[in-house]
Write a protein that binds this DNA or RNA. Structure first.
Lengths: 354, 354
DNA sequence: GCGAGACGATAAATCGGTTTACAGCGGAAG
DNA sequence: CTTCCGCTGTAAACCGATTTATCGTCTCGC
């Protein structure tokens, strides 16, 4: 409050006095507990309106062991993926009457562990953690030690202590294999430009397994690194430098958004026609991929579904309605077939799920 | 807490008992107040370590009028700009010993006003609002009514009640005019694809004023709309359809990131060479703009500077070290001259500031 | 008419800290 | 020797809600 207008906020006692009842009665009315005479309830509501009373959510939770707060820790708020995730989490939490506290670990595991501890300081009812590395990283360890309610999201697979929610990377990559191999490609380049997280590894495995199953003769090259952009660019360039056309892939499956961008730029610079000479399918969709020309065929992660599922699973744990062992949830991705993938006119379709 | 391990968290009273002093003394030690004998301070710190005590930030603030919390309300967490902004705000707030509570208004003004009120419920020390529309929108009105400490960022210009912090859109656009007109362009298309916010209008005005000042004969076309993508695409296409080459612009200044993408895609589809036939400069930089080919000349907004400034200005108000009228802060942008702008070999340079 | 039970309301305890008012103590000044 | 002051430390009040224990009242059944 900025000094000038010096009227204190109304407290529950002010409301009680104004309505001629006790604070306990006001509390009951406000939280919808029965056992209040209709007449008194009305007077309380009148007083609330007249005084413009609003409950202090902090004081409200003070006496309870847990507060109606859900913590969220994500590695990076700049990325549209986590931005969308947080937005979804916020909606779902709000719908359930919880406030969200968001913090970014900025891809640092020690910071992640700190933030988890800070969430515990706030006596959050539960925490949703998108780990920097994996389900067994520092943050998850800390949560285990602090015996917190939590759900691991995105960069996490099955865990023996916490529920997990993630995109079905494996199935989605199988879907990409179906598309490319089904389209006649027998030589594919898998390109990964980010740190090799569990998610990226799973994508690689899914594609390889399915492609090999479809046709054992399929040839798969891989180009993985998390070097600087220039180095990676050179690597891609070198790959496509090969004189014999049959020595290089006819399709690229890029395993992350960043990777898609890099490959695309390099193909353009070399004036390789997409998809005629080389088809391109990317993991992780982005708005610009519909807008470029050619538009980019990509796997869209079900970020809203992940967010909603994560909150629901967490709330179930908090309320104790689920018991027993933790569950691994996989949400189906959607493959948006656009121009760069080759075979056009194919509708978007769901791939995988669990 | 998940039930099994049933040891309550240590409270300040536990620490006091363990150290053989009173809770008040522990409180003093913890908050670095002097007037505690060195011997006692040591014993308190020992007890804190032994018990693993951590303060409850909620209970801590309960007695004070304000709590060490800063609220942030942004229109959209999915956008990298606001994601980066929030990350910066979080860092700065944390460095000052505050916790941040972030909420997304999802481009809705009524929701914005709701969130502001909710921040006030939390007794935040101050709020940083990136308004959906402008400095006179519903959120700012509510903050005024609630007499809150606040700073408006990004989509806001001078306000008679709150300090504001934003990128220096005007000066940056002047810089773009310098670049393009200086490069010989005498016919420029200004393209805006998003809702016409105050920021976009300012960019337009800055460019027009400077370009006209440099050479009164400069011709400026404008294409502004917030229609659906397809409609906009058609509009751009139509613009470049003109048969006479001298009837169309030789350079495009796109006023938002989305707009840059749209224009770029359309130029590509029509196989118009960038920058040879048409130069392109965009407002708002993105990672992909360095990676595409040609790379995109763009104005980078000083998001970290904005965040840091916003927090510092807010803290100054909270602590009452600034008085008098609110101040409008403009942070200088950086123009990254890359390939699409034409004249290469020019280093990035700061444009504007205040 | 009386005890039991249901119902509504409230005073008081509680949560975990901070702040205030005051007390004890030792040294310096008068 | 007394007084006064500054320095430490503590008990108690306080913040704004929830929850508990208690109490009065009314009704019902016997």
């Amino acid at each position: 409050m900025s000094g000038i207008s010096d009227q204190r906020r109304a407290t529950i006692h002010d409301v009680a006095r104004c309505a001629g009842v006790s604070a306990a009665t006001v509390s009951k009315v406000l939280r919808g507990v029965s056992s209040v005479r209709a007449e008194n309830a009305r007077r309380v509501r009148d007083a609330v309106d007249r005084l413009g009373y609003r409950m202090d959510p902090l004081a409200s939770g003070l006496r309870n062991e847990q507060r109606r707060i859900i913590g969220a820790v994500v590695p990076d708020l700049k990325s549209p993926f986590f931005g969308a995730l947080v937005t979804g989490l916020e909606s779902a939490a709000e719908a359930a009457g919880y406030t969200m506290i968001v913090a970014s670990s900025r891809e640092s595991e020690t910071r992640e562990a700190d933030l988890v501890a800070r969430m515990s300081d706030w006596r959050v009812a539960g925490t949703i953690l998108a780990p920097v590395r994996s389900e067994s990283g520092l943050g998850a360890q800390r949560m285990r030690a602090l015996d917190m309610h939590a759900v691991l999201v995105d960069r996490a697979s099955a865990n023996d202590r916490f529920d997990t929610v993630a995109a079905d990377n494996y199935a989605a990559s199988c879907g990409v294999a179906d598309l490319l191999v089904g389209d006649g490609h027998r030589h594919v380049l898998l390109h990964g430009a980010t740190r090799i997280s569990k998610a990226v590894r799973t994508r690689l495995e899914g594609f390889t397994a399915r492609a090999t199953a479809l046709d054992p003769r399929v040839r798969i090259d891989t180009l993985l690194s998390d070097d600087a952009v220039d180095v990676q660019r050179l690597a891609i360039s070198a790959y496509f430098d090969t004189p014999k056309a049959d020595a290089r892939a006819t399709a690229v499956f890029s395993l992350s958004q960043h990777s898609t961008l890099l490959v695309l730029a390099e193909l353009r610079r070399r004036a390789i026609r997409v998809p005629d000479e080389v088809a391109l399918v990317g993991f992780d969709d982005a708005e610009w991929m519909q807008t470029t020309w050619p538009s980019i065929t990509a796997v869209a992660q079900p970020v809203d579904a992940i967010a909603e599922r994560a909150v629901h699973v967490l709330l179930a744990r908090i309320e104790g309605t689920t018991g027993g062992y933790p569950v691994q949830h996989l949400e189906p991705c959607v493959l948006h077939a656009r121009q760069s993938g080759g075979s056009a006119d194919e509708p978007s379709r769901h791939v995988g799920g669990g």
